[in-house]
Amino acid sequence: MQQRSDQASQPGTGGRANQRLRTRTAILRAASELMRDGRDVTMPEVARAALVSEATAYRYFPNLASLLREAMAGQWPTPAEALARVADVTDPVERVAAAAEHLARTVLVNQGAARAMIAATVTRPEDVPARPALRLGLIDHALAPVADTLDAAALEQLKRSLSVVISAEAVFTLTDLLRLDAQEAVAGVVRAATALTREALRPTS
């Protein structure tokens, strides 16, 4: 009994450690709920939803991007799961279309988090961890049928080009700057991605 009491009184153990874990979990849960609701995700809003002060939230997560990255972890389907409907399809154009549609719709459903992550990483990229590479995994999986047949340099260039159009930035360009509705924006991203893929795979004479 004495040993148990001594351990509980030591800093960083027992109740204090459990409280820190509960606080961290509450902050992550609040961020996840804001993302699921499609609301703007800011540190003040997260702190308010988690019933903690903003200063407390920053003690656990040094910036919004690090919080969002951890809150997003494990929430998205794997590329194979996301593209399950084209699992038996070998046509890379059709697979890329599915990847583009999935990414665009995911961005539109999670606009608050997507915009917050873009803002955080664009304004101070040196201070935040890398953004989740959802698009890269989707692109790699979509192009898997031609990974061993397409010239390595051409494949790499295609992936780079696709990463520009299969992106949150492309979606927001279409909705914010060009004033397209959600369905038109999704269709625009899919058209651009499939056009790039067809051109890259076009036989050379």
Rank of each mutant, 00 (worst) to 15 (best):
E169D: 12
A147Y: 02
D148C: 05
H141K: 08
L143P: 02
L143V: 04
D140K: 14
L155W: 04
D140T: 14
A142T: 05
Q157P: 05
A153C: 03
E126P: 01
A147D: 04
V164M: 08
D148N: 10
A133W: 10
Q157I: 02
R135P: 02
L155R: 07
E126N: 00
L150A: 08
D127T: 07
V171A: 05
P125C: 07
A144Q: 13
A142P: 06
V164C: 12
S167R: 06
I139Y: 02
I139F: 06
L134W: 15
F172T: 04
A154Q: 15
T149S: 07
E126H: 11
R160Y: 12
D151F: 13
S167T: 08
L155H: 08
K159H: 07
D151L: 08
V165M: 04
V128R: 10
R131L: 14
L134S: 09
E126G: 01
L134N: 09
D151Q: 08
D140Q: 14
V165Q: 02
G137S: 10
V146W: 01
P132H: 07
E169W: 11
T149W: 04
L158V: 06
E126K: 01
T173K: 11
D148S: 14
P132C: 04
E169M: 13
V164Y: 11
V165D: 06
P145N: 05
D140E: 11
E126F: 00
V171K: 06
K159C: 07
V171P: 02
F172S: 00
D148I: 07
L155V: 07
A168F: 05
V164I: 09
A170M: 04
D148F: 03
L136F: 15
L150F: 07
S163E: 07
L162E: 03
L158M: 09
S163H: 13
A147W: 08
I166W: 05
S163K: 13
E126D: 09
L162C: 01
D140L: 04
P145D: 01
V146T: 00
V165T: 09
A170N: 10
L134E: 06
L143W: 00
T149I: 00
H141D: 10
A154R: 15
A168V: 07
E126V: 01
P129L: 15
P145R: 02
V128L: 10
L136I: 15
V165E: 04
V171H: 08
S161N: 08
D140S: 13
E169I: 03
R131I: 12
G137Y: 05
P125Y: 03
P129K: 10
L136N: 15
P132Q: 09
P125D: 03
A168D: 14
G137Q: 07
D127I: 02
L155D: 00
A130Q: 14
L158K: 10
A154K: 15
L134R: 15
H141F: 09
S167C: 02
T173A: 12
F172A: 00
K159N: 03
V128D: 08
L134T: 11
P129S: 15
V128C: 12
V165H: 05
A130I: 13
I166G: 06
P145T: 03
E126R: 10
L136T: 15
E156P: 14
